[in-house]
């Protein structure tokens, strides 16, 4: 038995071969190290993310998440659901809350779920992986297991939107959450508490549909990291990671900048600090290589 067990909802972008597979990989490594067992929800479906709203209006969208909760309650009874993707976490938690406040909506969702032979109790707590680290495991325990402190690396903690709002991590402020900075310090790196873009929106799904508007925002996020002397950016959100990392070429072209800023996950930081290989930490999944992390991993 692992020390901590959860019902795991990986989400579409974290699947193998998908845009955030490096998150999935490094989370697995991190969980091995922290003695966390993740029991995947069997046959989970997409949450429809923050863009599903337009075609899947309120009830269909909520029913999608209700299906995942129902499956978890059936197959992983009593386990807290944990998601690594901000959008997945948000959609699931929002659905659970809306259903518990609105009996009419719940009755309708039940009817729809019945079509798929499912039943929803809606009694399951839903957590983000960051909450697991901060609340269940704690900074002290994370720090205790560090084998190779990430000394000499200055990392801007970029929390983004949906990990931070509207729910956020309990006790943190929406305007200036500090848990990611604390996590960065726990693994021995230097945080950037003055990083003013830490909760700035990256454009989310609009990075696809409105590239110009989004890239202007992404530019600001990277620029501020450079201005604060950061070596790399770390984030808990797969959409943030992708948006901030992969468009740097296009931004360089559009704005005549010379950005080459690695963007990594907190789970990659922990994996490396815990002495795991670059491959285990999914550093090969970077478009912009995080060389300083690779070096530490090699040592």
């Amino acid at each position: 038995m692992a020390k901590y067990t959860y019902s795991y909802y990986p989400g579409c972008s974290s699947q193998k071969g998908a845009s955030s597979s490096n998150l999935m990989k490094s989370v697995q490594t991190m969980c091995e190290e922290l003695d966390v067992e993740l029991k995947e929800i069997p046959d989970w479906n997409c949450c429809s993310a923050s863009i599903g709203y337009a075609s899947g209006s309120e009830l269909p969208r909520i029913t999608l998440s209700a299906r995942n909760i129902a499956l978890s309650e059936e197959h992983n009874p009593g386990e807290t659901i944990v998601a690594t993707c901000a959008a997945c976490w948000l959609a699931t938690r929002e659905a659970a809350e809306r259903l518990s406040h609105d009996p009419q909506l719940k009755a309708e969702a039940d009817q729809a779920l019945a079509e798929a032979g499912l039943k929803l109790k809606n009694e399951t707590p839903i957590k983000h992986m960051a909450e697991v680290l901060v609340e269940d495991i704690g900074f002290e325990n994370i720090q205790a297991g560090v084998k190779k402190p990430l000394e000499g690396i200055k990392i801007a903690g970029y929390v983004g939107c949906q990990t931070n709002r509207p729910f956020g991590i309990h006790g943190e402020s929406f305007e200036n959450p500090v848990y990611l900075d604390k996590m960065i310090e726990a693994v021995g790196a230097e945080s950037v508490p003055t990083y003013e873009k830490k909760v700035q929106c990256c454009g989310g799904a609009l990075a696809f549909s409105e590239p110009e508007k989004s890239q202007e925002m992404i530019k600001g996020i990277i620029e501020a990291a450079y201005d604060n002397g950061a070596d790399m950016i770390a984030t808990p959100c797969p959409l943030c990671q992708a948006n901030v990392e992969i468009y740097q070429d296009q931004i360089n072209e559009r704005y005549n900048t010379k950005f080459n800023m690695p963007v990594v996950y907190y789970s990659q930081l922990i994996s490396v600090a815990y002495g795991r290989s670059a491959e285990d930490a999914a550093l090969d999944g970077q478009i912009i290589p995080a060389k300083q992390l690779e070096e530490i991993a090699k040592k």
Binding site: I51, C161, R165, P166, G168, C201
Partner: peptide, 8 residues
């Protein structure tokens, strides 16, 4: 973009 800034 569903950033939820306004909500909070």
């Amino acid at each position: 973009t569903s950033c939820y800034n306004c909500i909070v």
